[in-house]
Design a protein around this nucleic acid. Structure first.
Ligand SMILES: [Mn+2]
Ligand SMILES: [Mn+2]
Ligand SMILES: [Zn+2]
Ligand SMILES: [Zn+2]
Lengths: 140, 140
DNA sequence: AAACAGATGCAACTTTGTTGCAAAATAAAT
DNA sequence: ATTTATTTTGCAACAAAGTTGCATCTGTTT
């Protein structure tokens, strides 16, 4: 685990620091997406708010995490599983937001569909966010 | 024009006030989506910021406008063209954000596709946001 | 161990959004 | 047309979210 984290940081030419290790750990420890606030809480406010912002920005620009748009316009982040790198993200999967438990997850196995646009429009990226009940919540 | 606006407000049992008329006018005057900030600017800061927030909230709850999630998590609003009403929105169309001119539009003729979810997931709503170049911007 | 580059924390600030309340405007009743 | 009742508005104060500059500290390289 600690090794995997150090690998990720080294591969992206980032120095290994407390906040980066801890925040990466949070992402690797659970399957879903995290909001800035979640991270502050789960680190026990050990790091300055500004440091968390900057760490997320660096991870984002390096292609370690990607951001997820949601219907209520809160900012969520999740680990990139494909081979994303500095500048080029390929996270063309669908995101799912559970209305009951609030969790947001990447559905890596569900790729975004082709959208037929009207004449003249050129698409560069497509974001699909599905709301509903997740596996756990639709059982009961 | 003024009549159409009054009709909309009456139909939704809203009193006819300066801010509501002016803000509806803005939406009717142009084809795209508007952010809160756009509205403040285009009204020439004639109305209090709080009034604009409350007006948008009322319009949203009445089904006069709908909100659009974007990749950069800014909040946009656009007129509902279908028959949306208090509580029930049916804005199942794709949204397009132009990376060049920044405009966001409703592609009313492009309906959101069916998404096959993994076993156990139940969907209640699907948001599709396409980025790229709009008709005007892809010409040059 | 020393030197350098980069990351952190702090303070100060901006932007965005919310709430309570008195004053003003609108709608309804007389 | 006036009065009354109901909404809406603007203001002030606040809270939350995000940004920037700068001095200090930490990690990396030699
Ligand atoms: Mn994802
Ligand atoms: Mn729309
Ligand atoms: Zn759930
Ligand atoms: Zn354009």
């Amino acid at each position: 685990m600690q090794e995997a984290i150090q690998d990720i940081l080294k591969k992206n030419q980032l120095s290994i620091t407390g906040s980066r290790v801890k925040i990466l750990e949070l992402f690797l420890d659970q399957p879903g997406a995290l909001a800035h606030g979640d991270i502050e809480r789960r680190t026990g406010e050990k790091f300055d708010r500004v440091t968390v912002y900057r760490t997320l920005q660096v991870f984002l620009s390096k292609g370690i995490i990607h951001s997820i748009p949601t219907a209520d316009n809160s900012v969520l982040y999740a680990l990139c599983k494909d081979e994303c790198g500095e500048g080029h993200h390929h996270d063309n999967h669908v995101h799912f937001v559970c209305d009951k438990c609030g969790n947001t997850v990447c559905l890596d196995e569900v790729t975004v569909p082709v959208i037929r646009l009207p004449r003249g429009y050129k698409s560069s990226q497509i974001q699909v966010v599905v709301n509903g009940k997740c596996k756990a919540c639709s059982r009961d």
